[in-house]
Structure formats: structure tokens, C-alpha cells
């Protein structure tokens, strides 16, 4: 398996964007490009009566909530300038953004504990229990 380098800090891409605004929409946008999130999305987010968030994406109704990453974890956005053609070469990723919470959106469904993001984060607790050293008392 190829080695993956994750680079952060001096000499790399600007990493000053702390806690950037991450929106997880229930669609795959088939593009890799920058988006006018502030102009078209952030401004139109509202709060519903039950405390969730409400927004639209291309007319589709979205319901969401803000999910905080567990204590001790940090989300990073990585950028790869050049993807090698073969699988054996080393790969370089650069940290461009950090975040500690995610706005998670469902298509026309109230956010709940069954949402994949909430479920996925459960693994962190389970992993901790499974992999922490056993201390004999």
C-alpha cells in the first residue's frame, strides 16, 4: 500500500481557516470545485420550531442539525494537488481547513440518532473501548 503524507503548517497551503463552515448535504455533487455557499446556502438557513435547521438545495427541502465532533477530535479538509497515476507512489495531502463541527442535512427528514453521521461517530467510542490497553487492577 502506498504511503500517505498529511502535511500541515509552514510552507504548505494556507491553514489559517480554523473551524470552517462544513455542510454535509445528502447529495453527491459530481464536481470538485469551489461553491458559493455563503451566497446561496448559508443565508437561507432557518431554525424550525423544534430547534433543527431548515434550508433548501436546488429546491429540495433539507432538515439538519449541527453535529459536534467528540472531545479530542479535529476534522481536517485535505487537498491533493496531484494524484499519482499508479497506486504505489507516495501521496501528499495538505491540510487546508479545520473544523470541529458539521452541519449535517437530511432530505426532508428530521435529524435523529439514526443519521449516518451520528452512527459513524459512535465508532469512536467503540474503538476507544476496543483498542485502549487493558489495565489489570
Amino acid at each position: 500500500m502506498a504511503t500517505i503524507h498529511i502535511n500541515c503548517g509552514k510552507g504548505n497551503l494556507n491553514c489559517s481557516n480554523k473551524n470552517s463552515n462544513v455542510q454535509s448535504v445528502p447529495f453527491k455533487i459530481l464536481a470538485d470545485a469551489s461553491a458559493n455557499v455563503d451566497k446561496y446556502f448559508n443565508k437561507c438557513i432557518k431554525t424550525t420550531e423544534n430547534g433543527h435547521s431548515k434550508a433548501s438545495f436546488r429546491g429540495l427541502p433539507l432538515l439538519g442539525k449541527n453535529v459536534r465532533l467528540p472531545e479530542g477530535y479535529l476534522g481536517v479538509v485535505l487537498h491533493e494537488s496531484l494524484k499519482p497515476h499508479d497506486e504505489k507512489s507516495e501521496r501528499n495531502f495538505y491540510v487546508t481547513n479545520e473544523f470541529s463541527n458539521i452541519n449535517f442535512w437530511n432530505w426532508d427528514k428530521d435529524p435523529s440518532d439514526n443519521d449516518s453521521i451520528t452512527q459513524a461517530l459512535q465508532w469512536l467510542d467503540v474503538a476507544n473501548a476496543l483498542h485502549s490497553p487493558i489495565i489489570e487492577e
Partner: peptide, 9 residues
């Protein structure tokens, strides 16, 4: 004119 999207809908 826009990127295509894949989703539940």
C-alpha cells in the same frame, strides 16, 4: 448548465 447531482431523491 449545472453540475449533476446524485442523491436519494
Amino acid at each position: 448548465l449545472a453540475y449533476h447531482i446524485d442523491g436519494e431523491n
